[in-house]
Design a protein around this nucleic acid. Structure first.
Length: 357
DNA sequence: TACTAGTCAATAAA
DNA sequence: TTTATTGACTAGTA
């Protein structure tokens, strides 16, 4: 565990100076967005998490709410530069170098927009952190998610609107309410190739698989997890909460992969329910008052407009090509525990204030 | 060459 | 201030 921290810290060190576009975002793009909205949350004193998240967006260097967090936890940091940072985050659990995800894509970043995005050069600096696997996945849940539950449970506005009992792992699944119908209207053809992820049969299948992944968390969660697992296993196809935690967004990925497709359900994914991911991301962003621009830049390495479009008009996984990477990142981000998500956002912000000191 | 997919930057709208 | 929309560009492929 400690080793992990060291590794992470190591990553941190490496990444902290490899940033550039993220910093560029904060420095030149908006400076300090959401300062008003998020403060709203903070003022509520909902949770250190919220304040953290808020501070992340606020000063990008003010993040002082949680020393433990700001201390050394940024495995997910700027996935843009580090690219596979997140993937590695899970490597500890399973060999997920299965697909050529972020690394491959980030590889494109170099030449993606050499004219307008010269700062992308940082992308290839993606540290060869193949060993920097952050096994936080297990260690943090115990306390991390525990507070997460409260965190979400404290959320006022969304909660009032959602009116649904969020489990510690719900991770803001409030959006699922919408997703339900959204799924129905998923594109012109509701019966797309990836429709299987929604089909009852497929549901049970992947639901079972998911249970495995969730089980990991459950174990860490202790008692909390059981309920979740039960839910996942039950995965009532008729229930409005059909989409459970992280896994539910995934199509029956391991179904055909088994071991190759990240049995842990934390890293690699064969298929992602883009609609669900979009819904959840949207919900999370709202929950934390995270501007699309910030999330898009720091987590996805995309522009605000792109993110907006993806969130509003997510294409079916089967129709995606290189665009899958973007959704993978979103998905991975959702997989992250709250504090790690913050780290990801904060990281960029942290490095975005080099000239500050 | 034409088409598709993914993205960005600018701009409009809330 | 943030989000949504749009036109244009680039890359990959048939």
């Amino acid at each position: 565990m400690e080793l992990t921290m060291e590794n992470i810290g190591n990553m941190h060190g490496v990444a902290s100076h490899s940033h550039s576009q993220a910093g560029d975002l904060m420095n030149s793009s908006h400076g300090r967005p959401t300062s008003a909205s998020h403060r709203n949350l903070v003022s509520h004193g909902r949770s250190a998490m919220v304040s953290s998240m808020a501070s992340i967006l606020e000063g990008a260097g003010e993040y002082r709410s949680d020393p433990a967090l700001s201390g050394h936890l940024h495995p997910a940091m700027t996935m843009c530069e580090s690219g596979m940072s997140l993937s590695n985050t899970y490597t500890t659990l399973t060999p997920l170098q299965h697909l050529p995800p972020i690394s491959t894509v980030s590889d494109k970043f170099h030449h993606a927009h050499p004219h307008s995005h010269p700062h992308h050069h940082a992308a290839h600096q993606r540290l060869a952190t193949g060993n920097v696997s952050g096994s936080f996945t297990l260690m943090r849940d115990d306390r991390g998610l525990a507070s997460m539950g409260n965190l979400y449970g404290h959320y006022p506005k969304e909660m009032s609107g959602m009116g649904q009992p969020l489990s510690p792992l719900s991770n803001g699944l409030g959006s699922l309410h919408n997703s339900q119908q959204a799924l129905s209207a998923y594109g012109p053809g509701a019966h797309l190739p990836n429709d299987k992820m929604l089909s009852p049969s497929g549901f049970e299948s992947h639901a079972a698989m998911l249970s495995r992944s969730e089980e990991h968390l459950a174990r860490s969660l202790g008692g909390h997890g059981h309920g979740m697992i039960s839910n996942l296993n039950g995965m009532h196809p008729h229930s409005h909460l059909h989409t459970q935690a992280n896994g539910s967004m995934l199509a029956d990925r391991e179904r055909h992969g088994g071991g190759g497709a990240q049995s842990g359900g934390s890293g690699q994914v064969e298929e992602i329910n883009t609609k669900e991911v979009a819904q959840r991301i949207t919900a999370e962003l709202k929950r934390y008052s995270i501007p699309q621009a910030i999330f898009a830049q720091r987590i996805l390495c995309r522009s605000q407009g792109t993110l907006s479009d993806l969130l509003r008009n997510p294409k079916p996984w089967s129709k995606l090509k290189s665009g899958r990477e973007t959704f993978r990142r979103m998905w991975k981000w959702l997989q992250e525990p709250e504090f790690q998500r913050m780290s990801a956002l904060r990281l960029a912000g942290k490095s975005s204030t080099p000239s500050h000191g």
